[in-house]
Design a protein around this nucleic acid. Structure first.
Length: 149
DNA sequence: GCCAACGTTGGC
DNA sequence: GCCAACGTTGGC
């Protein structure tokens, strides 16, 4: 399986990931996204980094999974915006993974462009909004990589 | 800033 | 369990 992770570039962009090299993908507070992270995201899998809520929404680059799911520390940190008072160490509610930068596309692949391609019509990104961690099929991955060259 | 889509909360 | 109210996401 391949994946697509959304991020607001004003908070954390592909350029930040490239500069840092690796990142903890934390702060996921949606159950469907959590379940993908916790149950399915596997070591070494590819991840497209998608910029959302910005002037040019689209796929900005790719990364790979270097550590599979572990409890998101932010849920236990009362000073964090991602604090969850209902989570406990015995019963973590939220999970995160670690990723490593692989590539920054020469140009962000615009959402509008992705929408034009029949081969991508079934992408979760295009069929369902509001899901910040989502699967990408091998076929979709190949098509998008081809566009990014 | 608007607003559609959809997730979450909480009363019953 | 239903569903209305409310909150959030995210494109435009």
């Amino acid at each position: 399986m391949h994946w697509l992770f959304k991020t607001e570039p004003g908070e954390f962009s592909i350029d930040d990931l490239e500069a840092d090299g690796t990142a903890r993908w934390d702060g996921i507070r949606n159950y469907q996204a959590r379940n993908f992270l916790r149950d399915q995201v596997a070591l070494g899998e590819g991840v497209f980094i998608y910029h959302s809520s910005c002037a040019r929404p689209g796929i900005a680059g790719q990364a790979e999974v270097i550590k599979t799911a572990y409890p998101d520390p932010a849920q236990f940190d009362a000073t964090s915006p991602y604090f969850d008072p209902k989570a406990s160490g015995d019963d973590p509610r939220w999970f995160c993974v670690d990723i490593r930068w692989r590539a920054t596309f020469a140009e962000v692949l615009p959402l509008a462009r992705l929408k034009q391609l029949p081969a991508l019509a079934d992408m979760v990104l295009l069929k369902q909004g509001r899901l910040s961690v989502q699967p990408v099929t091998a076929e979709q991955w190949q098509v998008i990589e081809g566009l990014a060259e």
